[in-house]
């Protein structure tokens, strides 16, 4: 049986690596931004994977559960709450980046990062 937590951790790690690869090596700005959101989601998934517990239950205390059973079987709710905030922040930065990319495309007529974001001050 595949361990779900290990699988989630591995995929979050590969999300981050793939995202870093895209952000560094792909020239198209939109694709760069997609890579960046991969990194963001990888970090979020890492937090979620921390909260997982094999054969666990939702962290709601229902009648009939003993406190000891609940304590050793419920998932950890804190990372879920944190990730929710983090996703919202990630979405807003993504929106700002895409908006700037739009303006840059109108200004330069290109989406190539080496053309737009190269060194043009000197």
């Amino acid at each position: 049986m595949i361990d779900t937590q290990l699988a989630a951790l591995l995929s979050s790690g590969s999300f981050i690596i793939i995202g870093l690869y895209a952000a560094v090596f792909i020239d198209n700005i939109i694709k760069k931004i997609i890579g960046l959101s991969f990194i963001e989601e990888g970090a979020n998934m890492f937090l979620i994977a921390l909260a997982y517990r094999t054969d666990g239950v939702v962290p709601i205390f229902l009648p009939g559960m003993t406190p000891e059973w609940f304590a050793s079987n419920s998932a950890y709710p804190l990372p879920h709450a944190l990730v929710l905030t983090s996703i919202v922040i990630g979405a807003s930065t993504l929106a700002v980046m895409l908006a700037i990319a739009m303006v840059l495309y109108r200004k330069h007529g290109s989406l190539s990062a080496s053309v737009i974001l190269g060194d043009k001050h000197e």
Binding site: I16, L20, A23, I29, K32, I33, L36, S37, I39, E40, G42, A43, T93, V96, M97, I100, A101, L104, I116, L117
Partner: peptide, 12 residues
């Protein structure tokens, strides 16, 4: 844009 790209790596 550059600040946001670098920030989107540094932040996560």
């Amino acid at each position: 844009m550059k600040y946001m790209i670098l920030g989107s790596i540094g932040g996560p």
